[in-house]
Design a protein around this nucleic acid. Structure first.
Lengths: 265, 265
DNA sequence: CGACTCCTTGACTTGTCTCAACCTAAGTGG
DNA sequence: CCACTTAGGTTGAGACAAGTCAAGGAGTCG
């Protein structure tokens, strides 16, 4: 898992697009796992780079997505919509994740941008050709998918067995981690959460009214402070305790990136 | 995705263990993607085969699992337990799935057998060495993980946005599909569901009492019949409609295996 | 035979949803 | 520049789905 902060440091600079893609896929400034001939292979691939606005559909639920893409910057989300119109957000996709890699012909979920995004894409067939010539890359793909899988399992537990307060508190704690937010001297930390409360509700399987009420309560209890889309965490321990997640920190388990707050804790 | 029925047909016979493992990983009777030298590589790996009883822990939540295993027969499950004792079943693992492949050091969920199982294992390091020498295998691993990821996303939507009746009906419909159950001339189909109602409840994020009530209602409404662990589906269309899933069949989307009921429908 | 697990049913409680009203801030267009 | 619209957020009251607690039944095992 890679945090937004770390991902940003990997895609900046003057390197060519393929090199930046390879860097972020390997989560490494040096592409240390990649030999020279492999680097040439990645560089020769016909990556196309697109800058997308926020709130744009990358591909629709049920569509046969023809491209495999790497998210270089920005936030996107995976979502499913039911016939009766209810929406469930499955995951927020942060830089370094793959979009459109799948084993079946159709994709059962759709992907939309949240903020403006930059993605690098390759036709699926070329992507397969590329990773089948670079085993280390194929393995990284499996690992990246596995990261999403693990996070999806965590969501299942959240939705199946946790109360609204636990879910909201846990969501904020996870976002602290995934964004790579670092606590200041005061122990507080703050980050941009570029989504609406409706989106939080759709991610946590709650109604937007209930999310609002729960956030108000967390604020009243001195756990967080919200100003617009800026979230300040005042009491991370209390938040983790609310989320029923202390055990993860205590046992040294990763919550997400493993380079954020929780490894240090 | 591979159904239980199909998986069974791939692991039977007199072939050596590595060949059976390769077959089931490639979902192919002929290992058509695998050249001869690659077959030799798979065969040379030190696969160890274990027969496990039902209700046995394969590895615990939080443990650093040292082996990557392939489930050859039987049912297992992934689960998480919260500090307060609540349990969530994340997925039922059916033959052909990987156990223990992951990108992080610790595994955030545990795996237990449900029925007696046969698994073939390789130390993680050797597994990595193997797939890094056989790109086609590395890609299949990524695809298998992706299958679990997609199913996990479906569970997220189930738990987040569907009612108890929708979840239970959808669960049964999915199991028809995943087991590879085929409808008889009457349109009915029946299969063994080797789990308790408590397990269904823990998988669907419900209380066992509520699962019981819901199953009773589905029975009263003529959708299903249950005798012990044998489930007979009397009205699959009604069941899919209850599950709010007709759209998948209508649009030709896979529910699971893609070789079960729903592709034919 | 008891002891156990699993299932079933009933009565009551509660967490969350739904509906509805209202507020605020940020456009938008005349 | 101001009225209007719109999207997002807030708060309250009532409804209901699902949980909890409790008790009993059915089957199985030693």
């Amino acid at each position: 898992m890679i945090s937004v902060r770390e991902a940003n440091s990997l895609v900046t600079g003057n390197d060519s697009l393929p090199v930046r893609v390879a860097r972020i896929l390997f989560r490494s400034r040096t592409i240390r796992n990649l030999g020279e001939s492999d680097q040439r292979l990645v560089a020769q691939a016909q990556w196309s780079c697109r800058a997308l606005d926020g709130d744009v559909t990358i591909f629709d639920q049920g569509e046969d997505c023809q491209n495999v893409s790497v998210l270089l910057s920005g936030w996107s989300l995976r979502q499913q919509t039911l016939p009766d119109g209810k929406r469930q957000i499955l995951d927020f996709v942060l830089p370094g994740s793959l979009l459109g890699f799948r084993s079946s012909e159709f994709c059962t979920y759709g992907i939309e941008t949240v903020t403006p995004c930059i993605i690098a894409s390759l036709p699926a067939r070329q992507f397969y050709a590329l990773i089948s010539r670079i085993p280390a890359l194929a393995i990284r793909v499996a690992e990246i998918v596995s990261e999403s899988e693990v996070r999806a399992y965590d969501y299942v537990t959240n939705l199946g067995r946790r109360s609204a307060r636990e879910r909201v508190a846990g969501f904020i704690a996870q976002m602290v981690d995934r964004t790579g937010t670092i606590a200041g001297a005061s122990g507080h930390c703050s980050f941009e959460l570029p989504i609406t409360q409706v989106a939080i509700a759709d991610a946590l399987g709650l109604s937007n009214e209930h999310v609002c009420r729960t956030l108000s309560k967390l604020t009243a209890d001195g756990r967080i402070r919200m100003q617009g889309h800026r979230v300040t965490v005042l009491d991370i321990k209390g938040l983790l305790s609310d989320a029923c997640m202390e055990f993860r920190v205590a046992r040294g388990l990763q919550m997400g990136s493993g380079d954020g707050l929780f490894v240090a804790a």
